[in-house]
């Protein structure tokens, strides 16, 4: 009855957390409305789902995330292959790539806005910038793992650079590309929403901060809940797809 015990622990934890929340909400110790009762949040959640406005903003955010992600994947894989095939370039650039990879990307948002304005293109740019590093680093590391025999076979067939990429490198790079993509996709979602929160007029991040600014706290909680469900769901979907 292992699974039974697991479920009991999960249920008890969840109920305890929600209970503490509800108790705090009813205690009246916090500023009025700051901690709305669970029923209000649930109501706001379903009310949100009926708003046509929500789907427009969801579409904008999805568009920014996906476009940024695609740009990052294509350029990240190509740059990773270039780094993987030119050791000298890789040694020279790696210190920069590594330190940029760990830098909080959000600080580049002002530069993105200076370059392409405050609309959706700046979010696409930020998403691409965030996701390109894990993809590039994973692919460059994967290139070093490719069996030299395969590379020599390709060379003895006098493959062109592009043929090497499509026939030799890409099939061997499946796993690094998948792991880079999973990391990158999560980063795309985060940075897009944060950029929308900072400055924008559209998107899920905008909706959330707009609710906050108008002190519509239940709506804000509901939107955050929706965003988390979507983000975790997308991640689960992506791992399911890539597990095969």
């Amino acid at each position: 009855m292992r699974l039974g015990r697991t479920r009991v622990i999960q249920a008890v934890t969840l109920i305890a957390l929600l209970g503490v929340y509800e108790a705090l909400s009813r205690s009246g110790r916090f500023y009025q409305g700051a901690i709305p009762p669970l029923a209000d949040i649930a109501q706001a959640f379903f009310a949100q789902l009926l708003q046509p406005d929500l789907y427009l903003n969801l579409w904008v955010t999805a568009y920014e995330v996906v476009l940024g992600f695609v740009i990052a994947m294509v350029s990240g894989v190509l740059l990773g292959i270039v780094l993987g095939t030119t050791p000298l370039l890789s040694t020279v650039v790696t210190p920069f790539v590594d330190s940029l990879a760990t830098t909080p990307k959000i600080i580049f948002l002002p530069i993105a806005m200076l370059l392409v304005g405050t609309g959706p293109p700046s979010k696409v740019l930020m998403a691409a910038l965030s996701a390109i590093f894990p993809v590039m680093i994973a692919v460059a590391a994967g290139m070093r793992q490719i069996s030299p025999v395969l590379i020599r076979v390709g060379q003895s067939f006098r493959c062109s650079w592009w043929q090497m990429v499509t026939k030799i490198y890409m099939p061997s790079l499946r796993l690094p590309i998948i792991s880079g993509a999973r990391l990158g996709f999560g980063l795309c979602i985060i940075i897009t929403l944060l950029s929308e929160i900072k400055i924008s007029k559209l998107g899920m991040g905008f909706l959330t901060i707009d609710a906050y600014n108008h002190y519509q706290i239940p709506q804000m909680y509901a939107l955050l809940l929706l965003i988390f469900i979507i983000a975790v769901g997308m991640n689960a979907l992506l791992s399911r797809l890539t597990a095969r």
Binding site: A34, T208, M220, N235
Partner: peptide
């Protein structure tokens, strides 16, 4: 092991979710 099985999935989900977005909630608190 029982707690591990109960919480492991949640930790993985938290790792994949954009926790930083909760900041308006923290501001409220």
């Amino acid at each position: 092991p029982a707690f591990d099985q109960a919480y492991r999935g949640w930790l993985a989900a938290a790792f994949a979710s954009p926790l930083v977005l909760l900041y308006p909630l923290f501001l409220v608190f």
